[in-house]
Design a protein around this nucleic acid. Sequence first.
DNA 1: AAGCGTCCCAACCGCAGGTTG
DNA 2: GCAACCTGCGGTTGGGACGCT
Length: 331
Amino acid sequence: MGRSPSSAKNGLKKGPWDAEEDKKLADYIQKHGPGGWISLPKLAGLNRCGKSCRLRWINYLRPDIKRGSFTPEEEQTILKLHAVLGNKWSAIATHLPGRTDNEIKNFWNTHLKKRLIRMGYDPMTHEPRADLTACLRLLAVNNLSNFLNHNTLLDVNAIKLQFLKQILQSTDVGLPNLVSSISSSPAPDLLPKENPILNSLSQLENQSSFSLGATIPQPLHHPISTTLLSNPTLQSDPQVPFPPSFQTVPFDGEVGQFSAFSQGDNLTDSISQWDFQSVTDFVPSITKETTTTSISNHGDVTSSSSLIQCGGDGGSSSPWREIFFDDSILQ
DNA sequence: AAGCGTCCCAACCGCAGGTTG
DNA sequence: GCAACCTGCGGTTGGGACGCT
């Protein structure tokens, strides 16, 4: 394993270390201590460059090196620290006794980074990838538009036009933005003032946590991370605000909640795995209100039944899942 | 069993920052 | 102030191990 033992330009040996070299280096450092890496090879009788000796000592021979795979706690620590520090491997290593920066870096590149990518996160920012987020938002807007299509009381074309307008104008087509824009849109002639859809959407808007972006598990943002790191209690709490999937679960051949992602990076699976549950936790009640509003405002069986149908099942399936994600694309 | 592709990780490389004379 | 040297860091490489066909 490792690099080819090609000889260096200056005749110094390169490539994997053999047992004899390891012993020479270890013996020398045991007697004289680490340091003086430039002169060390000569003094220790090694035909290696100082850098190579230093690296071998730090990454392999040091007595306090911890061997074996990373524990779930260590993985968690790496994820948290990386969210704050980025690729500062040496800084991260100081929080993991017995682990070297090289080892952590390798572990990140071969496991954690891939895991984040599969989950749809940008491994550098720890935030949902912008392309996926935008895709989800457009799908949601599309589904909402389709939903409105079935509402015969409304001037569907007018609403569509306004949706389109919003999509084109905004780079961040979050539903709240959309709602407020529609609500404040100077088109009184096109939209009835007592519009059940707008009423319900406005209620959604008031749910501060609701946005299509918020349906995606939010990564740890740096300020929070900083707080976490400075708070020993939180540090030790594995439930700190990482996305649920971040809670270290066996992966990569491993089983666990990531399994859907590992199956060919299927976007649909990924989306469904992205815990829209968090939306359904609060949305059903809103939908019920919507139904009530719809009926009281208009007394129209058609419109209300449409809404009731969405929320009427009251069971485990979410009406919002139908409204926003009941799409053939997501099937 | 052989060929092929992917994974994993030790080790190398280049660069930046600090120290010394 | 400057150059040379030293140390440490992060990115990258390359080859053995392993799994799949």
